[in-house]
Structures are given as structure tokens and as C-alpha cells.
Write a protein that binds this DNA or RNA. Structure first.
Lengths: 306, 306
DNA sequence: GCGGGGCGATACTCTATCGGTATGAATCCA
DNA sequence: TGGATTCATACCGATAGAGTATCGCCCCGC
């Protein structure tokens, strides 16, 4: 069977046009090289060199193989290198579970940072709910998932990516619209636009517990699936809405974003989930980038557990 | 050192996701396969599989190598195949020495026929004189040369490609212009446009010997390098010109091509030269095509030797 | 809870083959 | 004609690839 050794030897002989000189270059003696070349010719069923008393020269078949062999040998080198880099997590792909409002600001910032450090890693985004992320993490369909208000699982680790302040969204026509900031207590009589209970613990429970802390139960006017839809409904006068800060990047006519007062302010997390048993080197590198991101943004603490 | 065996084994394991099953597919036993994979991982410095109790699965590095290895293995197969075909003369290049008036008809017909049979052989044309062709053939810069009136050489073989009748070119105003055919004897008083003595024996000598046979010495009005230039000079009234039939394909205003009568008609050869010591398989295939061309056109005999 | 089955890893042996040394055969040149 | 050069051949020792036997591990079922 043809081996890379044969090709390497052949290329050396083709370069030197002499078996003896090629043997020197390869640091072997001449007879074994002669034999390897004979073997290669035998295997291919083609004469590669015409032997003369002053060396060898390539036949048409030899010239053809020369081009091919050099290409193959360089591809093998390249493959080794790429494999090594893949083992170090420098190339490959990172499958990321994402959710709506995280993509307005926080998640893109983290992913940009990672892409800058590992440009050869392909980042594949998968919008999915909290439960779907946990399931996908376990099955390695994704390597990391981003979400809020994540529960604890024995096999899933979590790191807070960012703490966000909460904002109250009111229509421009609302009496509160001119205020610099608003307390949630002032929303006692306002109808709320909230997000559906697709996964517990969820943002609904979070808002409900906030209201409860201020002594009232929110009046739910409408449930929506997306933060942006909620803001649009606020603009249409369906009620008020509480959103994390990054939703502010969604500019909508007819609404005002007011920071919610509390001391200390209530913060909502964006948390990164990953499977403890996933030892993909790319994941490891990503977690390194994430830690750096946390340091840069002074993010401390563990996720809220309701 | 990494060998193709390693890659082949690795691909088999990656396909089966099981060392045991891959060993069966490879017709070897399981332990050596295990060792080869370990060796590959060692050489690359990368873990390619995560072993589990129910088989193995690819790591990121393994997935990377899988793509590369399959590509490399298929390239090796391709290279073998191409080399074999090159050995049979089915791919490669044919360097061809050509001359002016041969390219009007005869040489293109032969080369088209060869190209149809061996489309992967690249045909490279080199316009050159007779002597340059012989020199180039000896140095293998060309594999075949086309020419006329070739001398004999000990190391150069020749096969006539086509015999051509001679035509007399006269201006439209010439008294002979209306005739169906003309004997060279009727040109006793006409000035001749002839071709330079770049290589002996040449067309000049050929025409001179023809005139001598009819009892006169031609009056040379002008010497030119190209048959088409000669025809153009005839059109301008410089004299008459004798050309082989294929020059008729060069249509020029103001001239008439008249077949030269003689019985039997004097024929001029287009001959293919090649070096007896050139054992390129492509040359061999070309000579096969050439023989077929000769049969199709009922070409017999050896070249004229003046 | 224990034993059987399945999978990969290890230990050991055998042998094919790779590489080394010595030498031969052919050719060229002085 | 003899030395030098180049590739080919003969033979030998060592490496390592492939085989057999077995271990260790884990899952699964009784």
C-alpha cells in the first residue's frame, strides 16, 4: 500500500533528480530509498523515473505525481496543524442557545469578544427557551446557552454575564412619562403587559414578586412572547411594562423608558449556562473569554434563584 | 511519523464510531487499531476520540481531522489514478514544433484528431524552423515537429503526414489566370517569388529542381519568409509563386491558384519528425493517432530526400 | 447485588519490512 | 583501461505492525 513515506521520498528524489543526493537530504542511505521508489512504482503500476548513469529524470507519469504528491504532503501538514489548533479550541464551532431580549445588547457583546479572540471558530446561534437550552446542553447540541433567572441543575453550571437594571415602559401619554425615575409602587393601578409562563422560574414570577414586595398584585392586561412586542403594546396603550435595561436599545415611538427606583436597585441577570460534562476545548476557551468579560464589567455574584 | 495508514484507520473509526466495528471493516483485529489511533493522537498531540463504554465519539479535533483526512485520502486515490493515466499517455503535454504553411490545414487536422482522442493532453505549439525542430527534439523541448522536405538523421524518425499537390499562384491580370491548370514549363519567363534558404534542403531547392527538370532556371524576383507574404506579393504584381495546396485556404484578392500539371503530379510532403530515443507514452499515443490519420487519407511512402 | 456481555486498553509474541552495510553492474571520463 | 559515479541487488539486524489472550470497566438484567 502507498504510504506518505513513499510520497515524501518520491518528492525528494524528484527535487534532486538523483536517488543518492535525495537519500542524503532524507538522512537515509541510498539502497532503501531505491527500494521505496521501486515499491511506489510497483504499487502505482507506472514508471516514475528513467534511470541513467548521471541520475534520474521524471517521466510524464512522474511529473504528474510530483504535482499531486507535493500538494498532498502540504495538505497533510495543514491537516495536522488544523487538528492541533482544533484540539486547543482555536477552530471549530460553538453552538449557542439564545433568547430574545438577550440579543439586544449583552449576548452580541460577549460573542463579539469571543470572535475577536477566536476568529476561526464558527458561532452558530439557536434561539430556544430555557428548558430547551438545558436539554440541548445535555445532548451537546449547544455548548452554551444564555438566559435569565435560571434554576440550579446538578449537571449544568451557570455564570452571570451581566446584571441589568429594570426599566418601566410607559406610553408618552402616561402621567409618569415626564418623570426621571419611577418606583414600582407607583404602578399599583396600572395594567401590566407581561411575558408568558413558558418556563418557570420566569420573568412573570420575578415581576410578581417585586410587586408583592411593594404590597400589591399586578393587574395583567396582556401576555406577550417577546419584549419588543410588549413595548409595542405599551405604545398602543395596553398598559405598562417592565423590561431589562438592554431592551432600551429597541427604540419605539410613543413610549418612554424610565429607570425603576429601588435601593439597592433590583438587578436582573443574563446568565450563561453550560454542561459540566462538556469538555470541548472551545467551550473552555469561551468560558475564559466570559471570565474576562465579567472582570471588565465588574460582574460579580451568582444568578438569582427564585 | 503520520502515515496514510493512520488516516485510513482513523476515518474508519470515525465512520463507525467504534474501534471494534472499524477493525472488522478494515479486516484487522481490534488491538492494533487501538494502538494506531493512540499513535496518531500522540503524533498530532491531540485527542481525537472520547472513549466511552458504548464506543467512541469524535472530539472537535477529531471532527476537524475527519474532514481533512477524507479529503487527503481521496486525493491520494486521485493522484494514483492520474499517475497511471499519465503513464499510459492519457494525460500530460505534447510539445509540437510547427511551421507556417503547415498550420493552414494539415497540422490542425492532425492535432484535432489527437485532441479528440486524448482531451487531457495539453498541446503546446512552438513555431520553429526545421533545424530548430531537430535540435529541440533531441533536447526533448518538443516531442514532435512538423515540416517539409526533411533530411534524414540517424536519431530522428519521420513519417509523412500528407502529400500535397502544388499550385501556381498568379495575379488576376496574368494571361494564365483564366486557365484550368498550368505546367511549370509555362513559367519560363515569369519572375518568381521564393522562400529564403533558412534551412537546406528547402522549398527553393525543390522549386529549382522542378524548373531544372523542365529545362530552365527560375528568375528570382523576391525572397519572402512566409507563404502568405509570397501570395500577397503575387497579388501586388511582383511575379508568380509556387505553393502547396493547403495555402489555397489563404484567400487573397487579386490572385488565382492554378493546379500545376505534371503526370504523375509532383507532390510535396508535410512530415512529422520525432526523436527515436523519446519514449514518452504520449508521443507513442500521438504516433498511433498519426498512423490512423495516414490510413484515413491513404498516405503512403517516405519523405522526399533531395 | 451479582454475573454476563460488550467495549476499549494492555501484554506478549511473531513476522513483515524498513533501514543499514557491502557489493555489483553499467557508464563516463581521464 | 582504471577510477569515479550512479543506481540496483543481497543480506542482516532492529523496529513496529498485526495477531492472540486477557484485563478493566461499565451497563444491564436477573
Amino acid at each position: 500500500m502507498i504510504e506518505l513515506r513513499h510520497l515524501k521520498y518520491f518528492v525528494a528524489v524528484a527535487k534532486e533528480l538523483s536517488i543518492g543526493r535525495a537519500a542524503v537530504a532524507l538522512n537515509i542511505s541510498q539502497p532503501p530509498l531505491t527500494r521505496q521508489i521501486q515499491q511506489l512504482e510497483e504499487d502505482l503500476g507506472a514508471v516514475l523515473f528513467v534511470r541513467s548513469v548521471k541520475g534520474v529524470e521524471l517521466t510524464d507519469a512522474g511529473r504528474t505525481l510530483y504535482e499531486e504528491a507535493r500538494n498532498i504532503l502540504s495538505l497533510v501538514d495543514l491537516a495536522s496543524e488544523r487538528t492541533r489548533r482544533a484540539a486547543q479550541g482555536r477552530i471549530g464551532r460553538l453552538d449557542v442557545g439564545i433568547f430574545g431580549s438577550g440579543m439586544y445588547d449583552i449576548i452580541p457583546r460577549v460573542l463579539r469578544k469571543f470572535r475577536a479572540a477566536f476568529p476561526e471558530v464558527k458561532i452558530v446561534l439557536h434561539p430556544m427557551t430555557k428548558d430547551a437550552q438545558v436539554e440541548a446542553l445535555r445532548q451537546r447540541r449547544i455548548n452554551v446557552g444564555f438566559n435569565r433567572l435560571v434554576p440550579r441543575y446538578p449537571d449544568i453550571a451557570s455564570r452571570v454575564v451581566m446584571w441589568e437594571r429594570l426599566y418601566i415602559v410607559v406610553p408618552e401619554s402616561d402621567p409618569l412619562a415626564g418623570r426621571a425615575e419611577v418606583s414600582i409602587a407607583e404602578l399599583v393601578d396600572s395594567p401590566f403587559v407581561l411575558f408568558p409562563k413558558v418556563a418557570r422560574p420566569n420573568f412573570n414570577d420575578f415581576v410578581a414578586s417585586l410587586c408583592q414586595r411593594h404590597g400589591f398584585v399586578p393587574h395583567i392586561a396582556q401576555e406577550v412572547g417577546e419584549a419588543t412586542t410588549g413595548v409595542a403594546l405599551v405604545a398602543s396603550g395596553f398598559g405598562v411594562c417592565i423590561v431589562p435595561e438592554s431592551v432600551k436599545y429597541f427604540r419605539a415611538d410613543g413610549v418612554v423608558y424610565l429607570p425603576m427606583t429601588e435601593s439597592p436597585p433590583t438587578m436582573l441577570d443574563v446568565t450563561c449556562l453550560y454542561c459540566l460534562e462538556d469538555n470541548s476545548p472551545i467551550l473552555a476557551e469561551f468560558l475564559g473569554v466570559l471570565e474576562e468579560f465579567r472582570r471588565e464589567n465588574d460582574v460579580v455574584g451568582d444568578p438569582h434563584v427564585l
